[in-house]
Design a binder for these strands. Structure first.
Length: 502
RNA sequence: GCUCCCGUGGUGUAGACCGGACAAGCAUACUGGCCUUUCGAGUCAGGGAUCCCGGGUUCAAAUCCCGGCGGGAGCACCA
């Protein structure tokens, strides 16, 4: 190693991955990216993908990250008031710097202006056909009769949409595209429609609402978005929006499609989560079974872990499934140096040990890799050579006559198991235990332990006893319960932890 | 049905656009050694892949072409 320091270095550095550079930078005054969620649920791991890429690029080019709430469909995806705040909290937790923020439902006047312009130009029209009838026509590549009507007529109809003459479903603004386009979804797509459901922010102030492709395209242009990073499922939307850009003569942003990110059998579907939360199947949006950022945070996942994983994956147009194992591995590396070690005895049983001599000293490092962090020290004073210990019932399940070692303390032979469990002093040295292949188990005594519970990934609760010392920790601290797993302090009173991973 | 994407060890993937040092990289899982105290951590080592199938191009194919099979996504008056 001394002779070849450079080899050693090379291995250490391990190539920190960075994102590929953006294209077409010269076409834009500055890099502007946006994240545009519907506030109908909190952020989840799937949303994190485009968020992290956008944020990384904004920082890389000293650009702007724009947060834009797309809350224009109260009928189908009703926004939840609380989510406007939660999403901002989630972004802050991820370490994202938001430079500009907009709420689409506050911008209807802008969309109206462009809708009128579109109609006046003859690039759009108001269709009053029955939607089923219309579908038959466009599937057959046939225009409907509304399409050929003069702009004056459409402006008249526009007024009727706004003043309430048309009812919901009676009329819709369409953008002229190519009625013979091979993909039916592209043909004269709808841009604005009538919606009368009360909006949580706007109440009943508006009755004509833009659809996604219209408001998104107008806003991307107005806000000067240079690069759009979005899920592959939006591919056809890019094609649709290009028609609108062409009508108005706007420059279309660079689109980077990223594949859908799945979490191993994890729950990332917003509608499913919402259903489960509403029905009480889940304890809330941060139920440990969910893939929401809030749930991951509660389980002790570090925001840096999410960022690292996304950068490793890179902005690629392929769908991929992240496994929990992978997430846990990255997180573990991150938290391990700071996670002190403690004992937690799950499902404890009493083990009476006989034949103990004198006071016993236990000196357990808070972190075996960093002795300078200090020790947990305990003195055990047997009465008449006897002392009762608390151990995990699971650890004694298959030991019968075998030797076990109480970590950092003593080796004992288990004599009786079952209703009353007893053991006998065997030896002191851990080498003896190692040689004889004894199980090393952790232990507690009544005097130095407190009741604690750990919420597991499947939302079940493991009850047990923990070292009293853990009551000195703070909420959000990460620690390792030896031979149990890494956990996060969720609450001190009652004493509760969330299980992160092994 | 139409459009698009993907098919590499148990699992998740890299490499494929620009064929050749790729008898295939990484992570995880697994197995074993080590660890003056975690056999659920850490550390080191190891086993494990005819690169979905068939054909073609080529001196040379995981990589290019054709066909097949398998999986996924999109196709709303949702975002």
């Amino acid at each position: 190693m001394k002779q070849w320091p450079e080899l050693f270095e090379a291995k250490k550095v391990e190539a920190k991955k960075i994102l590929p550079p953006l294209r077409n930078l010269e076409k834009w005054p500055m890099v502007k990216v946006r994240f545009a969620p519907n506030p109908d649920g909190p952020l989840h791991l799937g949303s994190a993908e485009s968020i992290i890429f956008s944020d990384e690029y904004a920082k890389m080019y000293q650009g702007h990250f724009i947060l834009r709430f797309e809350d224009t469909s109260a009928d189908v995806k009703p926004p939840i008031l609380q989510m406007y705040d939660w999403i901002q909290e989630d972004l802050a937790w991820l370490g994202v710097k938001v430079d500009e923020m907009y709420i689409q439902s506050e911008r209807l006047a802008i969309y109206y202006t462009y809708a009128e312009k579109l109609l006046r130009m003859g690039a759009g029209y108001i269709c009053t056909c029955d939607s089923d009838e219309y579908k038959k026509l466009y599937m057959a590549k046939q225009p409907c009769t509304c399409r050929a009507l003069p702009p004056e007529e459409h402006l008249r109809r526009w007024g009727m949409m706004l003043d309430g003459s048309y009812k919901r479903g009676d009329a819709v603004v369409r953008v002229k595209t190519d009625i013979t386009h091979p993909n039916p979804a592209i043909r004269d797509w709808p841009a604005l429609r009538i919606s009368t459901r009360t909006h949580p922010l706007q109440k009943r102030r508006h009755r004509v609402w833009p659809l996604y492709n219209f408001s998104c395209a107008v806003d991307d242009h107005l806000m000067g978005i240079s690069h759009v990073i979005r899920g592959k499922e939006h591919e056809v939307n890019s094609t649709r929006q290009k028609y609108l850009y062409d009508h108005f003569g706007w420059q279309f942003p660079d689109v980077i499609n990223v594949g859908r990110l799945g979490l191993e059998a994890g729950i990332l579907s917003k509608s499913k989560i919402r259903e489960g939360v509403d029905s009480g199947v889940y304890s809330g949006w941060d139920d440990p079974r969910l893939g929401t950022l809030r749930a991951l945070k509660r389980r002790g996942l570090q925001p840096e872990t999410i960022r690292d994983i996304m950068i490793q994956v890179g902005p690629k147009p392929i769908n991929l499934t992240i496994t929990w194992g992978n997430i846990a591995a990255v997180n573990k590396k991150l938290i391990d140096p700071d996670a002190n070690r403690y004992f937690f005895v799950a499902d404890p049983i009493e083990l009476k040990v006989k034949g103990l001599k004198g006071p016993l000293q236990a000196r357990l490092p808070l972190h075996p890799d960093y002795p300078e962090k200090g020790y947990r020290e305990y003195t055990i004073e047997p009465e008449d050579g006897e002392c009762v210990f608390l151990v995990q019932s699971k650890d004694l399940a298959d030991v019968k006559e075998r030797l076990i070692r109480f970590m950092g303390l003593v080796n004992i032979k288990v004599k009786k198991t079952g209703k009353t469990t007893e053991g006998e002093f065997d030896s002191m040295e851990h080498q003896v235990a190692r040689e004889k292949g004894a199980a090393f188990i952790h232990w507690l005594i009544e005097g130095n332990s407190v009741d604690a519970e750990v919420v597991m990934p499947n939302a079940s609760v493991t009850k047990g006893k923990a070292e009293k010392l853990v009551t000195k920790l703070k909420v959000d601290d990460m620690l390792q319960f030896e031979r149990f797993g890494f956990v996060r302090v969720d609450s001190l009173n009652p004493l509760r932890f969330y299980y992160a991973h092994d």
